[in-house]
Design a protein around this nucleic acid. Structure first.
Length: 458
RNA sequence: GUGGUUGUAGCUCAGCUGGUUAGAGCGCUUGAUUGUGGUUCAAGAGGUCGCCGGUUCGAACCCGGUCUUCCACCCCA
């Protein structure tokens, strides 16, 4: 019995029109990456486990897909480890490779390994799939594409400014108006933790704060308390919850709150510089907003933090994120290389564009011209014409068999073909071909000897 | 990883407290129309009811397991 085939949880097949739409997004993202001076690289789908493990926290380690060793992998496991049935101890012995979890860590590895060939500052972009053993939900997959652009070896805050512009350029080109680029700075978060006397609970503090929009003020306070923050510290956080107004007003409030913290003040200054410079240059369609509750999970960020929210009314997790990390390559032994980068979540952007109906109409036009097949003799002339059209870069095809004309037209209709050409016995006799505009229904005849006239009218 | 939810025709979904041959709309095929699609009319094809097992005289329906979907945690693109 043939069994019903299936695909693993959280993976998808892409049909022709889906691939075309995805390529449309890839194309726009790539175009702007390149106009901003980024160069492409690619890294392997899987890395050595030690490259990835421990870089994303305990939670991240759990979500990394491990690859089983080849051969009789259990032979190398000693009895004690085997008997203990401890996955944490066993895994490193039976799995030495893992699928990449994001593009940033492999990039850091790349920079360290190729440091002698790279001209710094190095601006690279990378568009490749990543894998996470997460539980799928809407917009969360186990295999999805990330489009990353990072700059390493440049400390200037102008990089952050450019990255905001890059976000804006891509979303504008995609006609996705009203995306909000939320910004924060890790130094501000550190500063707040310092001011409220909870430096050693920085991570717990930020994780709890990050949930403000979801859980509300009371929920966040409760979680902070559960995570060990003192009532006194929580009281001092209070002003953050009511932080509102324009970016400038928020900056003023933060400045005041953090005046006694050196690092906090530095963070506010950085944020202010980026925001003022961006505002000076202007954005085309995106909004830039301060969000002090923005924390993001990855601990390697040290400066600016970005996250992009879809336009209002679309229920979707963030469609992009990024930030500055002063010491990413440090974990691989290369000190003092600062990096800053952003990422586009292709799969989520796809869902947003689909929901807002923002894909251009002509994307589904895989064929511009279909020649009908009226039989052997007629199709010879048709094939000649098709060949000529193809030489001129027109997507043209001849229907492969002389099926009923009715059926051939239906096929053209379903494939969204704008022009259908008929060369039947009548046309052949007159040395012509008939072009039907499928939208208007109009038919025009052209001489078979001068297809150029038709091509120019297209 | 925890708790819940979903699965019936290619698609979107009905299907009563378990009871004969499991339904609709759209799509598909054929014909009206052997050289004209997107409209109309008629006919037709298409289903191991996610999968495995159990209860029962009898299961799409009840029970257990499993896979999948989506949701809330967790985390995140």
């Amino acid at each position: 019995m043939a069994q019903k085939p299936g695909i693993p949880k959280g993976t998808r097949d892409f049909s022709p029109s889906e691939v075309q739409k995805r390529n449309y997004i890839f194309g726009i993202v790539r175009k702007h990456f390149e106009t901003f001076g980024f160069q492409p690289i690619e890294t392997p789908s899987f890395e050595n486990s030690e490259t990835l493990m421990g870089k994303y926290g305990d939670e991240g380690d759990r979500l990394i897909f491990k690859i089983l060793n080849s051969g009789d992998y259990l032979k190398k496991v000693d009895e004690a480890t085997y008997g203990a049935k401890d996955a944490g101890k066993m895994t490193p012995k039976i799995s030495e490779k893992a699928l990449r979890y994001d593009l940033t860590v492999p990039f850091a590895r790349y920079v360290v390994m190729h440091q002698n060939e790279i001209d710094f500052p190095f601006k690279r972009y990378q568009i490749q799939p990543v894998w996470r053993a997460d539980r799928p939900q809407k917009g969360r997959f186990r295999e999805f594409f990330q489009c990353d652009a990072d700059v390493v070896g440049a400390n200037s805050l102008l990089q952050e400014v450019e990255l905001v512009q890059l976000y804006d350029a891509v979303f504008t080109d995609l006609k996705l108006e009203g995306a909000t680029i939320k910004m924060n700075n890790r130094k501000i978060l550190s500063g707040i933790a310092e001011v409220i006397g909870a430096q050693d609970l920085l991570i717990d503090f930020t994780v709890a704060l990050d949930k403000l929009d979801k859980k509300g003020e009371e929920g966040v306070k409760k979680e902070m308390s559960e995570r060990g923050l003192s009532a006194q510290a929580i009281a001092k956080v209070e002003p953050l919850f009511s932080l509102s107004g324009s970016n400038l007003e928020q900056l003023q409030a933060l400045k005041k709150m953090l005046k006694d913290s050196e690092i906090g003040t530095k963070g506010v200054e950085e944020l202010q510089f980026i925001i003022e410079t961006v505002e000076e240059l202007g954005l085309q369609s995106a909004n830039l907003a301060i969000d002090v509750t923005l924390a993001r999970g990855l601990n390697y960020y040290t400066g600016a933090i970005f996250e992009v929210a879809a336009p209002k009314g679309v229920k979707m997790g963030s469609i992009g994120g990024g930030g500055r990390y002063d010491d990413l390559t440090g974990i691989f032994g290369m000190k003092d290389v600062s990096g800053v980068g952003i990422s586009f979540g292709l799969d989520r952007i796809y869902l947003v564009l689909e929901e807002l109906n923002l894909f251009p109409q002509e994307i589904d036009q895989s064929l511009q011209v279909l020649c009908l097949n009226f039989g052997d003799k007629e199709s010879q002339a048709a094939l000649k014409l098709v060949t000529e059209l193809r030489k001129n870069g027109i997507k043209a095809d001849l229907y492969p068999s002389s099926a009923k004309i009715n059926k051939q037209f239906k096929y053209a209709n379903n494939r969204n073909v704008p022009y259908v050409i008929s060369i039947g016995s009548q046309e052949l006799q007159d040395g012509e071909f008939t072009v039907k505009n499928m939208q208007s229904g109009e038919q025009v005849n052209y001489a078979l000897s001068t297809p150029r006239v038709f091509i120019e009218n297209l």
